[in-house]
Design a protein around this nucleic acid. Structure first.
Lengths: 127, 127, 127, 127
DNA sequence: GTGGTCTAGACCACG
DNA sequence: GTGGTCTAGACCACC
């Protein structure tokens, strides 16, 4: 289900966190659905259980999952994730625009980039 | 001239690299202009000379400066920096759009974000 | 495995870089094979860990190895090294010919030099 | 007469040495011809007199020039330079072939490279 | 345990 | 004076 990229510099536990977030956003993981246990996932990904533990801990801190001791970890039903994600996007847009101006990219050019990329992703969906 | 942010987790030497790149892009540093010596900059920023050395080494690798041993470090005249920067922007736009779609942000909304931010920076210039 | 030449004025870290490249080209080091850790190699070669770090950093920059923090350094699978090496040879051939002409060495003489040396290396293989 | 390349890493004094050697090989500087004085050349090249002194010292060590104290520096008449140059070429050919074999370049390919480059230089002469 | 960054202090070649 | 390399020893994040 989750594929790790060892060549990538981002920490393993963060890759897991990101992947779970993505699956929640895409609706692959639904509220109150149970996640694999720490040990099971550690085996599945051939990774140290500590690493999974760290990933789950962070997901819990961000209220994306909730944990019932002795039972397991479950997807949280709230939509905080969506709002956080949108805030993040706003910030990143800010940084991107800052860079673009520095590089002499005009507003029109940048907007065109965005539109082109957007289009492409829409097409990808139907292919 | 350069202000370091110790709270930021990006390495000191990278902060320096980025700042120099920015100053080159903005035309503050011009081709064949001499940079402060490794030692001098180390004193200015209250940082170890090796750290400056590492920053300058990376800048040289990226052809943004050239160095004459026993003489000093100088800004390189080529415009590769600009081209690289523009490529980088394209890539980041791609990632941003990917995230936006995931978060259910419509194309129109994202384009509006970009335009708004862009406008703001233009206004900043004249204030 | 690696023997350093302290009499040689080429920096230690560069000697290491060259040796690793050579071993990759010769197929002694294979893709995804793990290199000794920074610390271990530092002990093996009786050299400071920072020196090894510098060598590994350069190898990573040249995409000859990739590194996973907290895990280790691994040989990269791409064949960019081979292509770069061939380009380098073309450039050096150019310089050599320039020198030869300057010294009044005829084309035939130079070609003979090359053929003789080549032959010798082939013989070396079978001895 | 001599153009220095400050961006190049090779020491200034060595660039001067090489240029003088080249001019001797090309017959631009002839036996017993007087070279500019240390001071004059230092002014011409906008360089520290020590640097010129070092270059001349090395040229004298290699018997390419001889110096009469209080009179000046003169081109040496012997042809040792030519022989040294040819020896050097032999050595470099050896190294080049070594590299070529490592990179899997066949004898035929390398010889072709050499012949092609040689041809080009001959054509350059007549253009 | 791993790699990554930084400091402190030293030596060298070059100008 | 300049940059370039190296050593020694420290701290951090990650696994």
């Amino acid at each position: 289900m989750i594929v790790l990229n060892y060549a990538d510099r981002t920490p393993i536990y963060e890759q897991i966190v990101n992947k779970v977030k993505e699956m929640v956003l895409l609706g692959i993981l639904k509220p109150d659905e149970q996640l694999p246990s720490v040990r099971q996932m550690a085996i599945d990904l051939s990774v140290n259980p500590n690493t999974i533990q760290k990933a789950y801990a962070q997901l819990e801190r961000e209220k994306i999952i909730y944990c019932i001791t002795g039972r397991g970890n479950y997807i949280s039903g709230n939509d905080t994730l969506l709002k956080n994600h949108q805030k993040e996007i706003l910030e990143e847009t800010k940084k991107l625009v800052e860079k673009a101006k520095l590089a002499g990219v005009s507003k029109e050019a940048l907007v065109k980039y965005v539109e082109d990329e957007y289009q492409q992703y829409v097409e990808d969906e139907y292919r």
